[in-house]
Design a binder for these strands. Structure first.
Lengths: 222, 222
DNA sequence: GAGGCAGTTTGATATTAGTCAAGCAGTGGC
DNA sequence: GCCACTGCTTGACTAATATCAAACTGCCTC
């Protein structure tokens, strides 16, 4: 299972040994099977999580049954750190996953004692908001094939530098619900990008970016 | 100019007199004319702002010239509180406005001393994220007329309880760019809602909700 | 109060994405 | 190795939204 990029900001970033130990003392370990829910929308936000291995997705389903995927969550990412009392989305595992589970109450208290930890949390919150604003731009302004590039670009950034092969762990339905499209439109948009030589589709779940500049440009939102 | 709802969370919520005074000592006052920018995307996020009067909008424009409006900002709302070092959007005044301007560096330092202030900031950040997730859902899953209901519902929540007349300060283009539509589609969606008796359009900038239940239901995202 | 202007609405048409349906491809079971 | 199943792709058609164009409205100026 892929690990987080080395330079990625975590709640541990910059902490001294003693502080890291106190934080670790709070954290439990949690395993979750592929396809299971970590928690459901509207439930009490008791824990924050850090993904150690595996891939999950954040989603919201409305009373009318429509589903919006808010994010795909990779090792090193955080869950439930920027919420108020209730989770505003469900989280479901795409693969078997291992997470650090941190009680938010005690986590909050520790932040009062360790300003650097509080700063890390704030910065992670800023990153989450930035990601969400990018998604708003993509959904509001981009065409189907540009939204696919937006996703590919995001997934590529999870890879080690220079690796252009992208592993699509999620289904076409998951991608469709992330990008506000249907599976058929997603499939046709992939085919179009392949036809135009921007990507190669090795299999339905492995895509290679051939023209990184074009893909990046279509993904841009500022 | 409308004031913030009484029950709205601000950075001052729950602070003692002495703490509020220290916070106020940090804050400058800033006036801005209708149509002027408060700041531009990518600039240094030196200040956080609290709106005292007037209405503004948060927007992002891409290199290709497409614009996405991220939020309409009302009295009592905060700007630039959940960012990292650079603003990820521009903010422009729709009307003349007055804001409290708070240097983030000193604001951050004060938060280390006043945990309740830090909590307020965290909660406001949570509210901003919640708003943005609602927008993602609306843009990804809703049809044109439902997105209009989503906007009307949000604006209605700014009114005192029971007031169903909504003042649309922004232009149709602003609405279109907020909802990921064109001005023509926005206009047609308003006409459709009027034809079906859900709203009345007194003038292009004054709308009355006639069937609150239906409008609310179409606005929902969970 | 006539003319002009910016913003909005409406109409006709084009484009994009969605829907419905069929076929294809990889995977796992036996 | 064949079958069946699930998920993906493609095709034909429909529906929704965008585009282009014209007309309307309220407002401001003179």
């Amino acid at each position: 299972m892929a690990n987080a990029p080395q330079n990625q900001l975590t709640i541990f970033t910059g902490l001294g040994d003693e502080e890291a130990a106190r934080l670790n003392a709070l954290a439990g370990s949690r395993m979750i099977d592929a396809d299971a829910f970590l928690f459901h929308q509207h439930s009490d936000a008791k824990y924050a999580y850090m993904v150690e291995s595996g891939i999950l997705m954040m989603e919201r389903t409305s009373a009318s049954g429509r589903r919006q995927v808010m994010a795909f969550i990779h090792p090193g990412n955080f869950i439930g750190i920027a919420q108020n009392e209730y989770y505003e989305f469900s989280v479901r595992a795409l693969t078997d996953a291992r997470l650090k589970e941190i009680p938010r109450k005690q986590f909050d208290a520790l932040q009062d004692e360790v300003p650097l930890l509080k700063d890390n949390v704030r910065r992670i919150g800023g990153n989450i908001l930035a990601h969400t604003l990018d998604q708003v731009f993509a959904l509001g302004q981009k065409k189907a094939h540009e939204r696919i590039c937006f996703l590919l670009q995001q997934l590529k950034e999870r890879n080690p530098p220079g690796v252009v092969s992208i592993d699509l762990v999620m289904t076409r339905q998951d991608i469709a619900d992330y990008l506000g499209l249907t599976i058929e439109t997603v499939s046709r948009a992939f085919s179009k990008l392949k036809r135009e030589g921007l990507i190669d589709i090795h299999s339905a779940h492995t895509v290679v970016i051939l023209d990184d500049d074009s893909v990046s440009e279509m993904a841009l939102s500022d």
